[in-house]
Simulated scan of single mutants.
Amino acid sequence: MFIHIIANCNHAVSLAKCLRQIDAHEEHIIFIKDVRYHSQDYMSEVVKNFPSTRLLSGNLNITKSECVIIHGIFSNEDFNILSALLNMEIKVVWNVWGGDSRLMGNAELLPTLNRISYLFCAPGELLRYPDMIVPVINCNLYNAGLDDKSAFVSMKEKLIVLGNSADPSNNHEYLLSLIGKFTSYRFVIPFSYNATNDYMLRIQGLLREYSLEDRVDIITRMLSFSDYADLLRKAKAVFFAHNRQQGLGTARLAYELGCQVFMKKIIKQAIDIPTQVNPGYIDLVQMGYVDIHEITIIEHMTEDEFSIFTANRINALPELANNSPREVSRIFSVLKRELWR
C-alpha cells in the first residue's frame, strides 16, 4: 500500500486525478493535511476524483509493509512527520517540491534526509547537493486532467500572469521591469501564500515606480482549481523568473490551457554557485512540455513583436511522456519491486 501525505492545495487535486487515471484505488490512499497559509478547501474535489482519500488527523496506523510518499516538506510539522516515520523504520519516498531544496543544503538535516528510500525530483536537482545520496526517480504524479488544449487559443485576452506566489523567489522586481512597454496588456500577480507585509509594500512601491498600478492586479486570496484554470484560459502568457524554479504545477496547467510559458532555462542560484540548466525546465520538457520559452528574450522584444510571437501559437504536447499514466504505473511497479524484494 502506498500512503500519500499532501497539503490541502491544488496539487492534491492533480494527484487525485493522476491516481484515478492509473486505477490505483486498491493500492493507494491519500491523506490530506490541513495548512495554515490559506482557507481554501480542496478536500471535496480530491475525494470526487479519488474516493480513497482521508483527512490526516492524529497518528497514522502504518506498518512496515507500507510506503509513505510525502509530497513537499514545508514546515517543522512536516519534518517531524518524516522523522517519526523513519524512526518507525517505515519506507518513505519524498516527492520534492519547489521550496524543498533548501533542506538539502542543511548539514544538520542530512543524516535524517539520507535515510529516505527514494526521491521523486527533477533531473539535476541534486547537482548542488553532493552529500545527498538518496536514489532518485524522475517522475511526476500530478495531472491537471485537461482534454483538448488547442480549443483555448481563441479565448485568449491581452493578459499576462506574473509568477505563482508571493514568495520573493518569484523575482517580481525583474518581471515588473520587463512589462512597462506592454501598454495594451493587463497583468495578474498571484500573491496568495508566502506573503509578508514588507514584501507587499515593496511590490506596491515598484508598481508606483514603474507606473503600473492601473494595469496590475494582485490576487491575495487562494483561488480554487477551477478559478485558477479560468484565469489561465484567458491569459496570453505566464512569466516566471525564479533562480530555483517553482510553480511547475502552474506552468503545466498554463501550458495545457494554451498560455505561452516563459522561464529561465539557465539559472544561477547564488553568487558562488556555478550556472546550471534549470531542473524545472528539464522536468517540463521530459513531461512533454517542449514549447517553453526563455524569459530573457522579453528584454529585447517590443510590444508588437511580443504580440506577433505569441499570436495563435498552439503548444505541442506528446501523447507519451514521463507523466503519462503508463509511465506512472511503471514507476510504482518498480518501487514495489525495489522496496519489498
Score class of each variant (00 low, 15 high):
Phe2Lys: 04
Ala7Thr: 11
Asn10Cys: 09
Ser14Ile: 05
Leu15Trp: 14
Gln21Arg: 13
Val35Asn: 12
His38Asn: 08
Gln40Lys: 14
Gln40Asp: 13
Asp41Cys: 09
Asp41Glu: 11
Pro51Val: 06
Pro51Trp: 04
Arg54Gln: 06
Leu56Asn: 00
Gly58Trp: 06
Leu82Gln: 08
Leu82Tyr: 07
Ala84Arg: 12
Val93Phe: 10
Val96Glu: 07
Asp100Phe: 01
Leu103Cys: 00
Met104Gln: 01
Gly105Lys: 14
Glu108Gly: 03
Pro111Asn: 01
Ala122Asp: 05
Pro123Ser: 12
Leu126Asn: 07
Arg128Tyr: 15
Ile133Thr: 10
Asn138Thr: 00
Asn138Val: 10
Cys139His: 08
Leu146Glu: 01
Leu146Met: 03
Asp147Arg: 15
Ala151Pro: 05
Lys156Pro: 11
Asp167Phe: 09
Ser169Asp: 08
Ile179Asn: 06
Gly180Lys: 07
Gly180Thr: 03
Lys181Gln: 03
Lys181Met: 02
Phe182Gln: 00
Tyr185Phe: 03
Phe191Leu: 07
Ala195Asn: 09
Tyr199Ile: 07
Gln204Trp: 11
Gly205Ala: 03
Asp217Asn: 13
Met222Trp: 08
Phe225Gln: 06
Phe225Asn: 07
Leu231Lys: 01
Lys236Thr: 15
Ala241Pro: 10
Arg244Asn: 03
Gln245Val: 07
Gln245Gly: 00
Gln245Ile: 05
Leu253Tyr: 13
Leu257Tyr: 13
Cys259Pro: 12
Val261His: 05
Lys268Trp: 04
Asp272Lys: 12
Ile273Asn: 07
Pro274Val: 01
Gly280Met: 05
Tyr281Pro: 11
Ile282Met: 14
Gln286Ala: 13
Met287Gly: 07
Ile292Asp: 08
His293Met: 15
Glu294Asp: 09
His300Cys: 02
His300Ser: 11
Met301Lys: 08
Phe309Ile: 02
Ala311Pro: 12
Arg313Asp: 00
Asn315Pro: 02
Leu317His: 10
Ala321Val: 13
Ala321Phe: 14
Asn322His: 11
Asn322Gly: 12
Ser324Arg: 05
Glu327Tyr: 15
Val328Cys: 09
Val328Glu: 04
Arg341Lys: 14
